[in-house]
């Protein structure tokens, strides 16, 4: 079912990762992405893999959930792997077939790229999605970007839009499922026919969905005004973000990881 999609869903919890300041988490996630691409040697990869496993373990999110979240990546992975295997110009040829040649370098590039993508996805989703409520994430973004508001960037509006989008994704999916079922009950056929037929078959789903979203937008706007919403000016927040000791330790841990990777890159030969 559509609503079972776990991508972009928050798992409430009380782990260290849950408690970190969202601003710190955002900054650390960015650092982490950079780190993943800094790793060159095999031990460096091993270290960052270990660290990622550690992050998942600390978060309290089950490994099964993390693995399932990688499912949508499957085709991306296959695609990049194929490209790297067949279209990289390496010198050590392992196997040839017609114009295709598999080289050692190509193979290594394919494997390391796949590892990077998996690590990237797993770490960012655990840090930013599963252990950070979307609202504190947008909150974090809003506050990190707040200096930009001074030069006229509508940071609050942007953050509010993000929050709303996140709030209504599950509702929207549920509604889509309902409309699909209702049209199926009227004999709508979404599976047979050519591409044009299939595109046409979507009309009975998209139109009701669009209309209900417009109605929702209107009702929501009224409801927000009734709760005295008048934009970002003069607003306070219930949760005040303050960096705690744990945030500095988290930063320290990532700094240590950076040092580790640089050292391992220096002492061990690069894979490529």
């Amino acid at each position: 079912m559509l609503k079972d999609i776990t991508l972009g869903q928050y798992f409430p919890g009380n782990s260290l990762l849950h408690k970190l300041d969202p601003r710190m988490k955002l900054l650390l996630a960015i650092c982490y992405i950079v780190l993943i691409f800094l790793a060159k040697s095999a031990p460096a990869y091993a270290l960052i893999l270990l660290f990622t496993v550690l992050i998942v373990a600390v978060s309290g999110v089950s490994f099964g959930v993390v693995l399932r979240s990688l499912k949508p990546l499957f085709f991306v992975l296959i695609f990049t792997t194929l490209i790297n295997v067949f279209w990289s110009n390496g010198t050590t040829v392992l196997w040839t077939w017609g114009p295709f040649a598999i080289t050692r370098e190509g193979l290594i590039r394919a494997v390391t790229m796949a590892i990077r993508i998996v690590l990237l996805m797993a770490s960012t989703s655990v840090i930013l999605m599963y252990t950070t409520s979307p609202i504190s994430l947008t909150d974090g973004i809003e506050r990190l970007l707040s200096p930009l508001a001074k030069i006229g960037v509508p940071v609050h509006t942007f953050a509010m839009m993000m929050t709303m989008a996140l709030r209504f994704i599950p509702t929207l999916l549920e509604e889509t499922q309902k409309i699909i079922n209702a049209q199926k009950a009227r004999g709508a056929d979404f599976d047979s026919g050519n591409l044009i037929d299939k595109a046409k078959a979507l009309i009975p789903i998209l139109i009701p969905l669009l209309i209900s979203q417009f109605r929702r937008a209107e009702e929501l706007a009224t409801a927000m005004e009734c709760r005295c919403y008048r934009g970002g000016g003069g607003r306070t927040r219930m949760t005040v973000l303050r960096f705690a000791l744990r945030d500095f330790f988290a930063a320290l841990a990532v700094a240590a990881l950076l040092a580790g990777i640089i050292l391992l890159n220096l002492y061990f030969p690069a894979l490529l």
Binding site: Y10, S133, P134, I135, T163, M164, L166, R167, L220, A223, M224, R227, C228, Y229, R230, R235, T236, R237, M238, T239
Partner: peptide, 16 residues
């Protein structure tokens, strides 16, 4: 309901 967490939603009005 505007927020993704119940208590954040309840806080929306007073925050405004």
């Amino acid at each position: 309901l505007v927020a993704t967490i119940v208590e954040e939603d309840v806080a929306f009005g007073p925050e405004n």
